[in-house]
Write a protein that binds this DNA or RNA. Structure first.
Length: 457
RNA sequence: GGACGGGUAGCCAAGUGGUUAGGCAUCGGUUUGCAAAACCGCGUACACGGGUUCGAGUCCCGUCCCGUCCUCCA
């Protein structure tokens, strides 16, 4: 089966064909590094990792580019708002540059722990100021820009299909519904270059032909993707929130400058919902991977959790559903570990597994195939070999899993030995009393064929 | 308010016209001195009201609710 992917631009699933034979260029929008990534952010990167692994599984060489937005953009009011990096700098006492480095590293560490394959290229907005200035200059020479007192703006009405990606109903947009329009001429116009405020020293600012300032948010992606992947590349990814503004504007810039719609496929990961509410990084209230780990979950538990829903569906987060994923995954690990040596993989199960993944990355269905295999009558060595192949896409590191080492205090060990003695003597009352005592110390004793085993309870 | 996208059994979640998706939990069973763990078995649910059709969770209309965007956001 050929690879089918949903393209937001066409609003349909269509057959993926690379622009260059055997090679796929992917650009994925990365984070603004003013705070830790929350688990909702991370869901999108897990989707992109799945996409990449499926492409590789289909035999493509993937060139994967992720940007780091390390220059601030406005937080609120278009004219006077502080930007997120400056704000983060005040909050933490770090300079904006230190802040960027700190949160970039934290983000990369999260991805590594989630077993997300590292991109081929990480690119920072601040390392590509000249490319962005050149891009804006080109737009200016083609007549798509105008200046106001606070910046250089893109004149969106010069494009006749502005907003096609999001199917924007331009007339229905409420200008100023949520933000002051400033001197923008039209509701969908956006900043390409912003001037530094006269009365304030910014930490991050650069000279430009239009005056000292900093680049607009959208221009970095058009400029950097063009540099690393060309003017028209295979797949551009990001979160669903990027469809109406960020990606719409990226397309507008690139169409105006290069005449292409930037990417052949536009793919979007959908939000993780928290109690039916959006998990917002800007609100400061959010769950991080570290919090999950503190609560006894592993990054793989979260990885598996995300796989239980399709990337194009919003997903509800709850501790209960994360626990369900944890239980399922540990059963998968234990089953895998119990199977001994791997033999030959089942072509039939592999085919079905890959067929679902090639159907717009339907991981929930692919996982159903995994469970069908696990609970089938196939010989253990076949199950093991098959899952080993599937794990190249799953990325759960099934072969590396080991039961958690439990450090049992001597006192508990002694109690367990006493209990075993009582059991041998068939003194059940004493054995049960000792088990209760062990339990009160936070441990559980399980009687297996190989004798009693003490675990954390 | 508008555009776009959703509402599936206790929970998470696949599925777009007609044959049980799957996982977790509950319950029953195997096992165990009893447990635990593990394994096996077990669920006809599709927001609500109309309509189309031989047949609808799946298509159409209306209503209610949720999300995305119209500030920065994965």
């Amino acid at each position: 089966m050929t690879l089918q992917l949903f393209d937001t631009y066409e609003r349909k699933v269509r057959t993926f064909e690379p622009l260059k034979s055997g090679e796929v260029g992917i650009y994925a929008c990365g984070p603004t590094v003013y705070n830790f990534a929350h688990i909702g952010n991370l869901r999108t990167y897990l989707f992109e990792d799945l996409l990449k692994r499926v492409l590789i599984g289909n035999g493509y060489r993937v060139n994967h580019v992720v940007n780091i937005t390390d220059v601030g953009h406005l937080t609120s009011d278009a004219d006077t708002g502080e930007d997120k990096m400056e704000l983060g700098s005040k909050r933490t006492g770090m300079t904006a540059w230190e802040l960027a480095t700190f949160y970039t590293e934290a983000f990369q560490k999260d991805l590594e722990r989630l077993n997300v394959r590292s991109p081929d290229i990480w690119c920072k907005a601040t390392d590509h100021i000249q490319e962005q200035i050149d891009f804006v200059s080109d737009l200016e020479s083609k007549g798509f820009t105008y200046c106001t007192s606070d910046g250089v703006y893109f004149d969106s009405r010069k494009l006749n299909n502005y907003g096609y990606l999001a199917r924007l109903d331009i007339d229905g947009l409420q200008a100023g519904a949520r933000v002051n329009q400033g001197e923008r001429r039209f509701v969908t116009d956006f900043a390409l270059w912003k001037f530094s405020p006269e009365d304030e020293q910014r930490q991050m600012e650069w000279d430009s032909p239009w005056g000292k300032g900093f680049p607009g948010w959208h221009i970095e992606c058009s400029a950097m993707s063009a540099k690393y992947l060309g003017d028209f590349f295979d797949i551009h990814c990001g979160g669903e929130d990027h469809i109406p503004i960020h990606h719409t504007n990226e397309i507008a810039q690139t169409e105006a400058s290069r005449g292409s719609r930037l990417a052949n496929f536009w793919m979007h990961g959908y939000f993780l919902q928290m109690d039916n509410a959006k998990m917002a990084k800007s609100s400061g209230e959010f769950l991080t991977l570290d919090v999950l780990i503190e609560r006894g979950f592993t990054p793989f538990d979260y990885r598996y959790f995300c796989f239980t829903a399709h990337y194009r569906s919003q997903m509800s987060f709850s501790w209960k559903s994360l626990e369900a994923a944890q239980t399922a995954l540990s059963r998968l690990y234990e089953a895998f570990a119990s199977w001994g040596q791997a033999g030959d993989a089942s072509e039939e199960y592999l085919a079905r597994f890959h067929e679902f993944l090639n159907d717009d990355l339907n991981m929930p269905r692919a996982l159903a195939v995994i469970w069908e295999l696990v609970r089938s009558d196939e010989p253990d060595e076949v199950k093991k070999a098959t899952l080993l192949v599937c794990d190249e896409v799953l990325g759960l590191d099934l072969a590396d899993w080991e039961p958690e080492e439990v450090i049992v205090p001597d006192e508990v060990l002694r109690l367990a030995e006493d209990r075993e003695g009582a059991r041998q003597a068939k003194d059940w009352a004493k054995a049960d009393a000792l088990r209760d005592e062990i339990s009160s110390l936070g441990f559980a004793v399980e009687d297996t064929r190989e004798g009693p085993v003490v675990t954390k309870s």
